[in-house]
Design a protein around this nucleic acid. Sequence first.
RNA 1: GCGGGCGUGAUGGAAUGGUAGACAUACCAGACUUAAAAUCUGUUGGGCCUUGUGCCCGUGUGGGUUCGACUCCCACCGCCCGCACCA
Length: 868
Amino acid sequence: MSRYSASEIEAKWQEAWEKAGIFTARQSGDRPKYYVLEMFPYPSGRIHMGHVRNYTMGDVIARYKIATGHNVLHPMGWDAFGMPAENAAMAIGGHPKDWTYANIADMRGQMKPLGLSIDWSREFATCDPEYYGQQQALFLDMLKAGLVYRKNAVVNWDPVDMTVLANEQVEGGRGWRSGALVERRELTQWFFNISSMSEELLSALDGLENWPAKVRLMQENWIGKSRGLQFGFERSDGAQAIDVYTTRPDTLMGASFVGISPDHPIAKALAVDNPDVVAFIAECNKVGTTEEAVETAEKLGLDTGLTVKHPLNPDMELPVWIANFILMDYGTGAIFGCPAHDQRDLDFCRKYDLPVIDTFVALEDPKPVENEAFVPPKTDRVQWIDHFAGLDIATGQEAIDTTIAYAEKAGWGTGVTKFRLRDWGLSRQRYWGCPIPVVHCDDCGVVPEKKENLPVRLPDDVTFDKPGNPLDRHPTWRDVTCPSCGKPARRETDTMDTFVDSSWYFARFTAPHADTPTDMDAASYWMNVDQYIGGVEHAILHRLYSRFFARAMNITGHLPAKAIEPFEALFTQGMVTHAIYSTFDGEEFSAKERKELGVPDNWGAYKAEYLFPEQVEQREDGYFIKGTNRRAVVTPSAKMSKSKKNVVDPVSIISAYGADTARWFVLSDSPPERDVEWTASGAEAAFKHLNRVWLMSERIAEMDPDAKGQGDEELLRAMHKAIHDVTQGVESFGFNAAIAKLYAFTNLLGKSKASKATQQNAIRTLAQLMAPVVPHLAEDIWARQGGEGLIATAPWPQADESLLIDDNVTMPIQINGKRRAEISVPREMERAEVEKIALKVDAVQKALNGGVPKKVIVVPGRIVNVVV
RNA sequence: GCGGGCGUGAUGGAAUGGUAGACAUACCAGACUUAAAAUCUGUUGGGCCUUGUGCCCGUGUGGGUUCGACUCCCACCGCCCGCACCA
């Protein structure tokens, strides 16, 4: 008997697969194709357990599809542009390009030992000029097709560093490096016209049957289609009316003010000669640009002194307020406030002492609004107090429809459909991104670069010792001649949002070396992605942008019409988490930190210093720092992060146990869509189990082939049950359940006394069923047990239906829904017959106590319920 | 704040509306060993007594639908994710 040596067999089989070239994607008509894609990683330099889990899931699918006779495309690449490379250049010197490519080399080196079935010949990084040059070509085609345009938009501006900040670089309204108060600044920027496709992107969601319902719902809400009324409030001073948009026009009688955004043209006009307005707008601009910041900030308002006339009651005048919670981007940037039926408006009115007017009340409890707005579902029927269109009792929805019709007929308003989805701003004032291929000419305006001049390459000779975009202060790169008139001109110095890079990489994988963005022949063959796997954190933006891009690429002739929904099926996997260990020496905890860390009240008042798991040991009365009497806190699991010292490095796990153990563990303990907690004992257990399987194989190999066995039939049945269950598990992404079935079958096989032939058949089948998860171990067992060729390409085992069904079935007997007994009956037995037997059971007789049952429910093959 | 999700033993979790806790971890007991590790075997949701093929309770909390609810509906609590310049 030999021992299980993961490092030995893993290297051996990886070499064998590479030599046989079995993972090179082949385009041929004789087999169905299957395209499996895991979201490509950002090259941070280290792979983490989340990657291992994500790629193992994809690998299981890919290997299963190879075994079931498909041409499989399973590529890998690098989402390589972005801020971390520039941050690294600023922090430690060097060039983003060198940093990025070195990281890619490191990560590829860490990934290869995992034994993934990836076609590495298709690998690319988005920062390769060959890739971003094609992206520039796409941009030019989209520009021509009217899918890209320029307009002004607001950015976070750091006045000290003189640079644009990303939202994550703004902390508490201040720049993360300079600490300066961040200002809003308007710049002319490029936009993709994604909102022109709002309706299409929304309605096509219905066809995405193999996407998680929650993701479709999130996208639906994000696109945010609404039907409402748009109308003007006449200004008392006779100036141009203020247009408002509302989804609740039925509450118009309850209006107590008109609110406009601080960015509204009227607010800007007032600011010209009104210092109060200037100050108030400045105050509003201190709040960040994110929707979250705007929505959670304290509600502030300023009375402009202007008034408007109520459209239904000309005698009534409403004040016009500037309010910080009104977004210029949505609707018309102006609203009417109806405090009785909107909590935000109510808080605002109570704060500024504006009137609260009820327009409808609950049927059963008709009381006026106090400090809680009355906002029933639109489907609830309510009592109207004074509805101008004559409603008495009606639902909110009926009232909305009636009001829109009434306003349109009377001519003072229009029913309008609006979308929340905004156009996608793609300009970034940064170096490490895909250059936008246009030139600005004083005479010709914005001139697209000629396609034969692509790629517009990033210059290498840049430094990051000064704030701002290096492209902006690089004269020889920036200053060019106009492609149209030949006069001196300037290159666009903005680069593209990295979401652009990831919005079409899946298409590029079908022909990664083509000298056009895609190759129609290859794209037609491989698209769509049959299974896409990635985190739920990308549920909206990345996947919505990709859907937009696929449509844009179809319009510009780069993808076939069938590929406008590029991801046939989507799976969103959970994170890998790990417990966090810490001390409490050092600074004091804040109350918030206590809550966040779950620090018990009696544990002293000192701030945690995070500890690596191996610094901590468990004793009878709790956790301690190894070899000391200092206590440690163990907080429940959280996403692995360097700063919390709870990262488990896949490289060290692979060197300790092997890739198969890591792969087995990340799939075994939790359902794939949920987070999995990494535990040392769990990893250890996975390793032990693989050892057991190995030893079992050795034992079977050494059995006497002529010895008589017993229980062959039972083992055979269990084997076919395992084939059936594991196949189902893999097909339905129930990897943890499939692994549980593999455990059960392995335990059974371990105890089996069946003949050698049957056991050998069983262990070979077990190896095949395990192969997608632990391909190296499976390959080795397969070879030792006389399997033909590579297990990686061997056809997937088929379950024999006739061996799956037992003749007898155990049926639980319930009395009033509680299990009280069970009977064993032939599977095909008639209902009446089953009922007769069930009624004779002691427990039933006792419960009936001589009487007759009220009702007997017999679910054939399942359960009997006797109601007494 | 808005949108989405999740909540089951000591722990990770299983369960087409049909026997709640599969499978695994941890713990405990036993075998093997001079001993330990490793390995193997067995027990383990809580409670009660009359120790039985027994009874009661039990899937975040409260209500509802159903012969039957972890599963469906309503409300609440807690945690996680996203919110348009992080990737």
